[in-house]
Design a protein around this nucleic acid. Structure first.
Length: 469
DNA sequence: AAAAAAC
């Protein structure tokens, strides 16, 4: 925290950073914050997860607070979800100040937004289309805007927002401070920078640092018909805390999420054809862990920062290397390890290879897990779930399964735990299990995996980042 | 070719 203080950040914000668990500034914060506090324009080549939002958010809030009233800061993002996420982070950074950030995006009731705007948030985080809508209606005026942040500028370019962005920038004062963040710097983005930024500082997080070092990357060669069953197997075996399954189309996302739900997984789909309120709700549930598998199109590929995402499954190979990098970047965040696993059908192997070359990272082949692997994984999960229930004192629901398991378990402590569970009244004191719990259980009908069988699929263990079943 | 984004 001393290092944050040394950057010249005010006490209220330091206090908020403390509460948010920030310890040391990331490279982009260390370099960017002083430059921005000085008032310079900035081009930042970095992704989220590098602490980018705080890098512009801290100076933004510092600057804004001295001039209460009108809209003084604008952040533009390519997707609606990102607008919500960035606004939330800004509000956390500014929680001990009088500064408020409001997300403004399409698909949400505009009257509701107009009402919220009457409370005069100093910062607006918006997708371009809806912001333009408000500008035309006169419900947002940008004359007093002192800082404009273009977040994920290359993606906004891809989505055809460049003209909107130019128009928005032209509406604001030339005195404004302009920040442009982009993972890549294609020609049109360079032109934009040249036209609208004045003598910008350049901060580049090198390519090596852009690819996420803590994400283990694997692929599995598989045919299309097997994909769903194998996904279920993997979910059982690897038991992710939270996971994202990326599909190629909206339709595909619907199919996979429905099928997962039918099999009893806690999954929800998200894509651009859903109503915005549904999208907001799904993402909220996912963040809270109410839903633990998010099935998504590339709408969720960029910038989304959800803590606890231990696994990303590319159910379908992404179209381009850029999309691949963004998708797998949803895990391995904030220094936590993550696993990215990509399903590849044989004719796509070459495409996978080109992704490998572009990202300059080896994607390791992983064999399809056997049925025995799956059975064992499933049982381990069931036992773990059961034991959690025992700890929490909710026995009734698991009674039947527990009785079944009693005949299968070869571990004395598991047996004892389950016995306790079955003999306790449902309202009695929960059993506290403190001993190390063995997780191996005997498989059905003596159908053990032969000792010479391959046993290879790594399971992610966040504690030590080692790979084993 | 698909996805995203304003009504």
């Amino acid at each position: 925290m001393q290092k944050f203080k040394a950057l010249g950040i005010s006490n209220e914000i330091i206090r908020a950073l403390n509460e948010m668990g920030f310890e040391e500034p990331t490279p982009i914060q260390l370099e960017g914050i002083p430059v921005l506090l000085e008032g310079k324009d900035l081009i930042g080549q970095a992704q989220t997860g590098t602490g980018k939002t705080a890098a512009f958010g801290i100076p933004l809030i510092e600057k804004v607070k001295k001039h209460p009233g009108m809209v003084q800061g604008i952040v533009l993002t390519p997707t609606r979800e990102l607008a919500i996420q960035v606004a939330e982070e800004l509000n956390r950074i500014g929680q001990f100040t009088e500064i408020h950030a409001l997300p403004i995006y399409g698909g949400q009731d505009i009257q509701r937004q107009i009402k919220a705007l009457k409370r005069h948030p100093q910062i607006i985080v918006a997708t371009p289309g809806r912001l333009m809508d408000h500008m035309r209606r006169g419900t947002i005026k940008l004359q007093d805007t002192q800082m404009v942040v273009l977040d994920e500028a290359d993606e906004m370019l891809n989505m055809g927002f460049i003209e909107d962005i130019e128009q928005i920038l032209s509406t604001t004062s030339d005195e404004r401070q302009t920040l442009l963040f982009s993972a890549t710097m294609p020609r049109p983005i360079q032109n934009l920078a040249q036209r609208f930024l004045h003598d910008p500082a350049l901060i580049k997080i090198k390519a090596k640092e852009i690819t996420i070092p803590l994400v283990e990357q694997h692929y599995m060669e598989i045919n299309d018909r097997q994909k769903f069953d194998v996904l279920c197997r993997l979910l059982d075996i690897q038991s992710p805390e939270l996971s994202i399954v990326f599909g190629r189309t909206k339709r595909r996302v619907d199919e996979v999420s429905e099928a997962l739900k039918k099999r009893g997984y806690s999954a929800e789909g998200i894509h651009g054809d859903l109503t915005q309120s549904k999208r907001d709700a799904v993402l909220r549930q996912f963040r809270e862990g109410i839903v633990d598998i998010l099935v998504a199109t590339d709408v969720a590929a960029r910038g989304l920062d959800v803590s606890g995402v231990t696994h990303v499954y590319n159910f379908d190979l992404p179209q381009d290397p850029e999309s691949y990098v963004h998708r797998i970047g949803r895990t391995g965040r904030a220094g936590q390890p993550g696993l990215a696993l990509t399903f590849v059908i044989s004719r796509e192997l070459e495409h996978l290879h080109s992704i490998e070359q572009t990202t300059k990272r080896k994607i390791l082949r992983m064999p399809v897990p056997t049925m025995a692997d799956a059975v064992e994984g499933q049982q381990r999960l069931t036992v773990e779930k059961l034991l959690n229930q025992v700890e929490e004192g909710n026995y009734d629901h698991y009674k039947g399964r527990a009785e079944e398991l009693l005949t299968e378990m070869d571990s004395v402590s598991l047996l004892a735990a389950a016995l306790k569970m079955l003999t306790k009244e449902s309202h009695s004191t929960p059993v506290k299990i403190t001993e190390e719990l063995p997780v191996r259980v005997r498989t059905y009908g003596g159908n053990r995996r032969p000792s010479n069988a391959k046993k290879v699929v790594p399971k992610i263990t966040p504690r030590n980042n080692s790979w084993k079943y």
